[in-house]
Write a protein that binds this DNA or RNA. Structure first.
Length: 879
RNA sequence: GCGGGCGUGGCGGAAUGGUAGACGCAUCGGACUUAAAAUCCGUGGGCCGCAAGGCCGUGUGGGUUCAAGUCCCACCGCCCGCACCA
């Protein structure tokens, strides 16, 4: 690699070259629209971004989370895809073979809702939206290999997803079971646990109901341990995401044990409980059952009071407020159970509203002394409170506050059966499990919060589950040669529910096994399935199997994945599961079971909200374009608006800025430059009209500088002298911009480029040297503002496309200054500075520092107590 | 309640324990112009001072250090995730 900055401008002596140069310099002002479309055509013609396997270069796969085709791109897309583009273009210019694809996460409810509302077909709606969004996205000048584009609703894609499903079914990773499911009564479909937020459907916001249905599941919980353990290896993922996933998987180690009932209820003679604090067993006060526990159900049949209690609890709902304010309430069943360590010790059995059926066994033993909920309950119903342990020092019995120390904390056991005295909770727990297992009344059990992933959806616009129900053969997978099981086109959306169920003929098929009349499965897959393997498909998007193993081997893993934090759990966990499932079914290599080597979660684009109020005092929101940003009045009426602090751009608050209109008025480079500047990429960035204009002005300034030099440099020829300061500034710019890009600190790269622009503008260096500096600047800007970079590069005689040029390398010698300015502190406060040669010996620096006027003043004739010299950094005189 | 993050000018934000406020925006002043826009140059934390310079200053209070925005302790505030999880 060579340092571009040091390359002299080629001498242009012949008339043809002169003419060409003059022609390039003709434009009178920066016209982004012309410039941008010109270079986009140039890249397309040259095939600059078409990826092909090439073992002579290191590969680099950069991927941004693909968009849902909602109909319009928004600023969040611009930011997300610009970040990916910066990385992709940078990697390209550092000699990598880059794969940077784009596609569409195209199945889903909105298409069906649109069909219901306006009568079209979801496919039509979706493909129209894709066409519009592609047209809006292309002007951004992203370095995308569009030849790999696909939509997940393409039969070609979902055929392979169905093939995968069948392979997973055969591998035992998919199964069907009767399950109580989360039913969204508005969307009329089942939701995964992950899609229920605070008891409401993630999309509809409707209160979720519980229903029992036969559903398809992916066996993700089987991989809970592996998915948890492997998080440690994801060094280039944000800590936050790893923590969120670990919490979601929710591993706990505890003891499962039975309490013998003194009188059986139906078939039940034992109450099975699970506890993570078995060391508190001697503090047991009562046994608690969930209102949904089988024993409770049995008792309800004969006990109307209990049935009434349970009904009321169930009605209580699971909303956040309900839970927070809900009082601990219980119902004494009158039953008793024996304590496993003392058969004469009988504990009462209560049904309590705070016990969940879907965690553990749905039953607990309560130890009020060491659990606040249990304590509240015990105090309310006058149940005993028995301390098991107290603080190691100065411990006193529990009164109104439960003593719940961390498991790592040492406590003094005062009531235990395994000879424990001073021990940590963890030690106590381990000892108890050990004791119970030896005595045979309990088992150490590891539990996970993670549930199997229910993927059945009773919707039309999704990937059909490729199985057939046959009266004789049962559930039979469709033959692979019959894939895709294609969605019928002639469907109606005039009624709620699943159109596939109502279709007159689609369901009727022969059984793939015995050939007799059978019916198709009408459930379609959760759309999260579609996005769980698309990254692998991009490596060979037209393969006739889900993946092409040699292409996958070459391109996988994704080296850098970029997207929103909102996908920290669902999408990323499912993708990790799918990569493992694909490896087990032979569709990915072992190395790809963690598909994303590095993850970056970018912040949102926000904007102020402008509101007025209607006659009833209800807020009315206004688009930024309708408001004068400075005076804060409505342009149309002159009415003042209330300004609400910046929030995520959202249609409902109307605080949106349309990328299309920004591109039209300022160009794509301005939009790209702006979203990369100011805010660190992981944080939110606030879109402001002033900021966008400033970005535009800056790009215009760079363009003008190039324009000026384009003319003068062409006339002047190479320089006789050279300007050391400019060379050094160039080297520093290369160094810092590069570091910024590599460290995902694009805002710092942008800041450095501003600084470098100022330096070049003020430089008195000969024109060819300034032109060289500007060519380097064009390269450094090219990941962010690729079109302007090409324009400047070409105006100043750069060879070929800047997109093909090798990233500049700073000469290390130029990064070190011969002389350094050392600040001089007196007692830690900066008082003066001296300029010294960079390798001046310490003793001489000391001498100079002490001779300094400010130091002399501070010393007032005395001697310093201490003198610290940090070479090349600072001097501190202590007086 | 548990886990994670953050708090720096009027604003967005810089700052391997080593000159706090890089860079951008806003402001103000100047140049160019008949004028305006555009552009260019300068100013740009607060207070005192003509200046040189001084004092204060990174949410609050303590501590470690020659030196703290940065490290430690306690507190306050904001944001995000999880949560009657046994």
């Amino acid at each position: 690699m060579r340092a571009q900055a040091a390359t002299p401008l080629p001498v242009r002596s012949d008339a043809v070259q002169g003419l060409l140069t003059r022609k390039r310099c003709l434009m009178s002002r920066y016209a982004p629209r012309e410039v941008e479309s010109k270079w986009q055509s140039a890249w397309a013609e040259a095939g600059t971004f078409t990826a092909a396997e090439d073992t002579s270069k290191p590969k680099y796969y950069v991927l941004e989370m693909f968009p849902y085709p909602s109909g319009r791109i928004h600023m969040g897309h611009v930011r997300n895809y610009t970040m990916g583009d910066v990385i992709a273009r940078y990697k390209l210019s550092t000699g990598h073979n880059v794969l940077h694809p784009m596609g569409w996460d195209a199945f889903g409810m909105p298409a069906e809702n649109a069909a219901m509302a306006s009568g079209g077909h979801p496919a039509e709606w979706t493909y129209d939206n894709i066409a519009v969004m592609r047209d809006q996205m292309k002007p951004l000048g992203l370095s995308i290999d569009w030849s790999r584009e696909f939509a997940t609703c393409d039969p070609e894609y979902y055929a392979q997803q169905q093939a995968l499903f069948i392979d997973m079914l055969e591998a035992g990773l998919v199964y069907r079971k009767n399950a109580v499911v989360n039913w969204d009564p508005v969307d009329m479909t089942v939701l995964a646990n992950e899609q229920v937020i605070d008891g409401k459907g993630w999309r509809s916001g409707a209160e979720v109901e519980r229903r029992e249905l036969t559903q398809w599941f992916f066996a993700i919980s089987e991989m809970a341990e592996e998915l948890l353990d492997a998080l440690d290896g994801l060094k280039d993922w944000p800590e936050k995401v790893r923590t969120m996933q670990a919490n979601w998987i929710g591993k706990s180690r505890g003891l499962q044990m039975g309490f013998e009932m003194t009188a059986p209820v139906g078939d039940h003679s034992m109450v099975e409980v699970y506890t993570t604090r078995p060391d508190t067993l001697m503090g047991a006060s009562f046994v608690g059952l969930s209102p949904d526990h089988p024993i409770t159900r049995e008792l309800e049949k004969t006990n109307p009071d209990l049935a009434a209690f349970c009904a009321e609890v169930r009605r209580g709902g699971t909303t956040e407020e309900a839970l927070e304010t809900a009082e601990k309430r219980g119902f004494d069943t009158g039953l008793t159970v024996r304590h496993p360590l003392d058969p004469s010790w009988e504990l009462p059995v209560w049904v309590a509203n705070f016990i969940l059926m879907d965690y553990g066994t749905g039953a607990i033993f309560a130890c009020p002394a060491h659990d606040q909920r249990d304590l509240d309950f015990a105090r309310k119903y006058n149940l005993p409170v028995i301390d098991t342990f107290v603080a190691a020092e100065g411990g006193s019995p529990v009164e109104t506050e439960a003593f719940v120390p961390a498991k790592t904390e040492k406590v003094k056991y005062i009531n235990h059966f395994a000879d424990l005295d001073l021990a940590t909770g963890d030690e106590g727990i381990a000892a108890t499990i050990d004791f119970a297992e030896k005595a045979g009344w309990g088992t150490g059990v590891t539990k996970y919060r993670l549930r199997d992933w229910g993927v059945s959806r009773q919707r039309y616009w999704g990937c059909p589950i490729p199985v057939v129900h046959c009266d004789t053969c049962g559930v039979v997978p469709e033959k692979k040669e019959n894939l895709p099981v294609e969605l019928p086109k002639d469907v109606s959306f005039d009624k709620p529910g699943n159109p596939l169920d109502r279709h007159p003929s689609w369901r009727q098929v022969p059984c793939p096994k015995c050939g007799t009349a059978a019916t198709r499965e009408t459930d379609t897959m959760d759309t999260f399935v579609d996005s769980s393997w698309y990254y692998a498909r991009f490596t060979a998007p037209r393969a006739t199997t889900p993946t092409d193993l040699s292409a996958a081997d070459y391109w996988m893993n994704v080296d850098q994945y970029i997207g929103g934090i909102e996908h920290a759990i669902l999408h990323l966990l499912y993708s990790r599961f799918f990569a493992r499932a694909m490896q087990r079914t032979g569709h990915l290599q072992e190395k790809a079971i963690e598909p994303f080597n590095a993850l970056f979660t970018q912040g949102m684009v926000t904007h102020e909200i402008y509101q007025t109020r209607d006659a009833n005092g209800r807020p009315v929101y206004h688009l930024p374009e309708d408001v004068d940003a400075e005076t804060r009045i409505l342009k149309a009426s002159g009415e003042p608006v209330e300004v609400i602090p910046s929030a995520k751009m959202s249609k409902s608050k109307k605080n949106v800025v349309d990328p299309v209109s920004i591109i039209e008025s300022f160009g794509a480079d301005t939009a790209r430059w702006f979203v990369m500047s100011d805010s660190p990429p992981e944080r939110d960035v606030e879109w402001t009209a002033a900021g966008a204009e400033a970005a535009f002005k800056h790009l215009g300034r760079v363009w003008r500088m190039a324009q000026d030099l384009c003319q003068s440099a062409a006339e002047t020829g190479p320089a006789a002298s050279s300007d050391a300061a400019l060379a050094r500034a160039t080297a520093r710019a290369i160094d810092e911009v590069t570091k910024g890009i590599e460290g995902f600190a694009f805002n710092k790269s942008v800041a450095k480029l501003y600084e470098f622009t100022n330096t070049v503008a003020k430089s008195q260096a000969p024109a060819p040297e300034r032109a060289a500096a500007l060519r380097t600047m064009a390269q450094l800007m090219s990941p962010m503002t690729p079109h302007l970079a090409e324009e400047v590069w070409s105006m100043l005689g750069g060879e070929g496309l800047v997109a093909d040029a090798r990233w500049p390398v700073a000469d290390p010698a130029l990064l070190v200054d011969d002389t350094v300015t050392l600040p001089i502190q007196v007692n830690g406060k900066r008082r003066s500075e001296i300029s010294v040669p960079k390798d001046m010996p310490k003793e001489e620096v000391e001498k100079l520092a002490l001779a300094d006027e400010a130091v002399q003043r501070a010393l007032a004739g005395g001697a310093p107590k201490k003198l610290i010299v940090v070479p090349g950094r600072i001097v501190n005189v202590v007086v």
